[in-house]
Design a protein around this nucleic acid. Structure first.
Length: 96
DNA sequence: TTCATGACGGGGA
DNA sequence: ATCCCCGCCATGA
């Protein structure tokens, strides 16, 4: 991007400041940068700019306290489950 | 400008 | 309690 938005920069700075041993949720990050409701934007920033800015992206998790899957993965898993395919965590169960 | 996409979240079924 | 759907904000084609 040519000129990063203030919100983008604030988000980068905040995430970068998360200390070791602490985690925040996407929603909390959004609130802390005064942009409540843009949790999805936070995830977008992490996925697109973590490398460039050396962000501790692993310290940001979802509100359920879990590791987030990409939407495509969530959709695919849901579709397969609906068709009766059995999952063991994130991999197919080997036995019928 | 509209349209689709994304490491999300809350509220209804 | 879990699951699904839809709204949310910003971005890029």
């Amino acid at each position: 991007m040519k000129s990063p938005s203030p919100l983008f920069l604030r988000t980068i700075a905040l995430v970068k400041a998360i200390p070791k041993g602490k985690v925040l949720t996407y929603g909390e990050v959004a609130n802390l940068v005064n942009s409540p409701g843009s949790a999805r934007y936070v995830s977008y920033i992490l996925s697109s700019s973590s490398k460039k800015y050396g962000l501790p992206w692993h310290r940001v998790i979802n509100a359920k306290g879990e590791i987030s899957e990409h939407l495509a993965q969530q959709r695919q898993k849901r579709l397969l489950v609906k068709e009766g395919v059995v999952f063991d965590f994130n991999k197919l169960s080997l036995d019928a």
